[in-house]
């Protein structure tokens, strides 16, 4: 049972990283967008392995159901070609490898050399109730600010995306 769970975990790790690689390197935008779906899904499953059930559900609902649809709309609305073959160029691929390599070395050495203090993991319990309690007590102000931010983004996006005539 333990072995099976471990096996499934590594399958989803490979799915997440592999589809992220497709997102970064595929020459067609639509393929990148659909690969991003699998990355979001994989991260959602990793949240489940981390005993974050509410977060996994909201990851699926908001990212896969919301943000990804928005991105696909964005791809279609900003290209004149009505096909799946919307190509995208990449540039500076070799210059970009230098900061990536440096950042990778720094991150890897930090992750592997730091003695992380870990506490014993507790039994996974449903987190929805606990999260709701935290959001309405300790995190009440950020929670309300977030709703204000979403309202501002809603109005701002409508104002920006509205068709406006030029003055002449």
């Amino acid at each position: 049972m333990e072995l099976l769970s471990e096996l499934i975990f590594y399958c989803f790790v490979v799915l997440t990283i592999g589809s992220a690689v497709v997102v970064v390197f595929h020459p067609r935008v639509m393929y990148s967008a659909f690969a991003l779906l699998f990355t979001f899904f994989g991260v959602g499953v990793l949240y489940l392995y981390l005993a974050a059930d509410f977060l996994a559900a909201s990851q699926l609902l908001i990212y896969v159901g919301g943000i990804l649809i928005l991105i696909i709309f964005g791809v279609f609305l900003t290209s004149s070609i009505m096909s799946l073959e919307i190509l995208q160029e990449t540039h500076q691929r070799f210059i970009a490898l230098i900061p990536i390599a440096l950042g990778g070395i720094v991150l890897l050495s930090v992750i592997l050399s730091t003695p992380w203090t870990t506490t014993a993991t507790t039994e996974a319990v449903p987190t929805t109730k606990l999260l709701g309690r935290l959001l309405l007590t300790r995190y009440l102000v950020p929670f309300e600010l977030a709703s204000l931010l979403l309202l501002a983004a809603l109005v701002g996006a409508m104002r920006l995306a509205r068709y406006f005539r030029t003055e002449e």
Partner: peptide, 14 residues
């Protein structure tokens, strides 16, 4: 997640 949603909406409008 909340901030990512707001950011995606505004970015696509831009």
């Amino acid at each position: 997640v909340i901030i990512a949603a707001a950011e995606a909406a505004v970015a696509l409008a831009i």
